[in-house]
Design a protein around this nucleic acid. Structure first.
Length: 97
DNA sequence: CGTTTGACGCGGC
DNA sequence: AGCCGCGCCAAAC
Protein backbone atom coordinates (compact mmCIF):
# COMPACT_ATOMS: atom_id res chain seq x y z
CA UNK A 1 0.00 0.00 0.00
CA UNK A 2 1.15 3.51 -0.75
CA UNK A 3 0.02 5.83 1.97
CA UNK A 4 -2.78 4.68 4.27
CA UNK A 5 -2.90 8.08 5.88
CA UNK A 6 -3.46 9.98 2.67
CA UNK A 7 -6.04 7.41 1.56
CA UNK A 8 -7.97 8.01 4.78
CA UNK A 9 -7.84 11.75 4.34
CA UNK A 10 -9.01 11.61 0.75
CA UNK A 11 -11.79 9.19 1.67
CA UNK A 12 -13.14 11.52 4.35
CA UNK A 13 -12.81 14.43 1.97
CA UNK A 14 -15.00 12.67 -0.57
CA UNK A 15 -17.64 12.11 2.13
CA UNK A 16 -18.26 15.78 2.85
CA UNK A 17 -21.78 16.59 1.60
CA UNK A 18 -22.28 19.51 -0.81
CA UNK A 19 -23.28 22.64 1.05
CA UNK A 20 -21.39 21.59 4.17
CA UNK A 21 -17.82 22.16 5.30
CA UNK A 22 -15.43 20.61 7.79
CA UNK A 23 -12.10 21.58 9.31
CA UNK A 24 -8.51 20.41 9.04
CA UNK A 25 -8.63 19.49 12.71
CA UNK A 26 -11.77 17.38 12.41
CA UNK A 27 -10.34 15.42 9.51
CA UNK A 28 -7.14 14.94 11.48
CA UNK A 29 -9.21 13.58 14.36
CA UNK A 30 -11.18 11.23 12.09
CA UNK A 31 -8.00 9.79 10.61
CA UNK A 32 -4.56 8.88 11.90
CA UNK A 33 -3.15 12.21 10.80
CA UNK A 34 -2.41 13.24 14.38
CA UNK A 35 -2.10 16.88 13.42
CA UNK A 36 -4.04 19.21 11.12
CA UNK A 37 -0.82 20.14 9.37
CA UNK A 38 -0.70 16.78 7.66
CA UNK A 39 -4.24 17.25 6.38
CA UNK A 40 -3.26 20.63 4.97
CA UNK A 41 -0.21 19.08 3.42
CA UNK A 42 -2.26 16.30 1.81
CA UNK A 43 -4.62 18.83 0.25
CA UNK A 44 -1.75 20.94 -1.01
CA UNK A 45 -0.30 17.93 -2.80
CA UNK A 46 -3.51 16.81 -4.50
CA UNK A 47 -2.79 15.85 -8.11
CA UNK A 48 -4.30 17.96 -10.87
CA UNK A 49 -7.47 16.52 -12.34
CA UNK A 50 -8.87 15.12 -9.10
CA UNK A 51 -12.60 15.46 -8.44
CA UNK A 52 -12.39 15.83 -4.68
CA UNK A 53 -14.12 18.73 -2.88
CA UNK A 54 -10.93 20.18 -1.38
CA UNK A 55 -12.66 23.56 -1.06
CA UNK A 56 -14.99 22.24 1.68
CA UNK A 57 -12.13 22.21 4.17
CA UNK A 58 -11.72 25.33 6.30
CA UNK A 59 -9.92 26.26 9.52
CA UNK A 60 -11.13 25.68 13.08
CA UNK A 61 -12.04 29.36 13.29
CA UNK A 62 -14.38 28.72 10.37
CA UNK A 63 -12.41 30.94 7.98
CA UNK A 64 -10.57 30.03 4.80
CA UNK A 65 -6.96 28.98 5.26
CA UNK A 66 -4.41 31.44 3.89
CA UNK A 67 -3.15 29.96 0.62
CA UNK A 68 -2.89 30.83 -3.06
CA UNK A 69 -6.24 29.27 -3.99
CA UNK A 70 -8.25 30.89 -1.20
CA UNK A 71 -10.12 33.22 -3.48
CA UNK A 72 -11.03 30.40 -5.83
CA UNK A 73 -12.17 28.43 -2.79
CA UNK A 74 -14.38 31.28 -1.60
CA UNK A 75 -16.04 31.43 -5.00
CA UNK A 76 -16.67 27.68 -5.06
CA UNK A 77 -18.23 27.72 -1.60
CA UNK A 78 -20.47 30.66 -2.46
CA UNK A 79 -21.62 28.70 -5.50
CA UNK A 80 -22.69 25.92 -3.14
CA UNK A 81 -24.70 28.26 -0.98
CA UNK A 82 -22.13 28.64 1.78
CA UNK A 83 -22.39 32.17 3.15
CA UNK A 84 -19.73 34.22 4.93
CA UNK A 85 -20.50 36.78 7.61
CA UNK A 86 -18.96 40.26 7.77
CA UNK A 87 -15.79 38.82 9.34
CA UNK A 88 -15.45 36.15 6.68
CA UNK A 89 -16.68 33.29 8.87
CA UNK A 90 -18.93 30.41 7.83
CA UNK A 91 -21.99 29.72 10.00
CA UNK A 92 -21.31 26.96 12.55
CA UNK A 93 -24.40 25.04 11.35
CA UNK A 94 -22.68 24.37 8.05
CA UNK A 95 -20.01 22.28 9.74
CA UNK A 96 -20.06 18.62 8.95
CA UNK A 97 -19.28 16.35 11.96
C1' DC B 1 20.96 11.56 7.66
C1' DG B 2 20.06 16.52 9.99
C1' DT B 3 17.24 20.63 8.90
C1' DT B 4 13.58 23.16 7.12
C1' DT B 5 8.94 23.61 5.92
C1' DG B 6 4.13 24.45 6.16
C1' DA B 7 -4.10 25.02 2.97
C1' DC B 8 -3.30 24.20 11.31
C1' DG B 9 -4.81 24.35 16.43
C1' DC B 10 -4.79 25.74 20.93
C1' DG B 11 -3.71 27.92 25.09
C1' DG B 12 -2.08 32.45 27.08
C1' DC B 13 -2.36 37.27 27.28
C1' DA C 1 -12.09 39.13 20.14
C1' DG C 2 -7.57 38.89 18.16
C1' DC C 3 -2.51 38.23 18.16
C1' DC C 4 1.66 35.40 19.51
C1' DG C 5 4.26 31.28 20.42
C1' DC C 6 4.81 26.63 20.50
C1' DG C 7 3.73 21.77 19.19
C1' DC C 8 2.92 18.80 15.63
C1' DC C 9 5.14 15.24 11.84
C1' DA C 10 5.73 13.63 6.89
C1' DA C 11 8.15 15.19 2.88
C1' DA C 12 11.42 17.94 0.49
C1' DC C 13 16.31 19.42 0.43
Amino acid sequence: MKSALREQILTILAEIPPGRVTTYGRIAAMTDAGTPRLVARALRELPAGHDLPWFRVITASRRLADHSGAERQRHLLLAEGIAFDARGRVAAERLWP
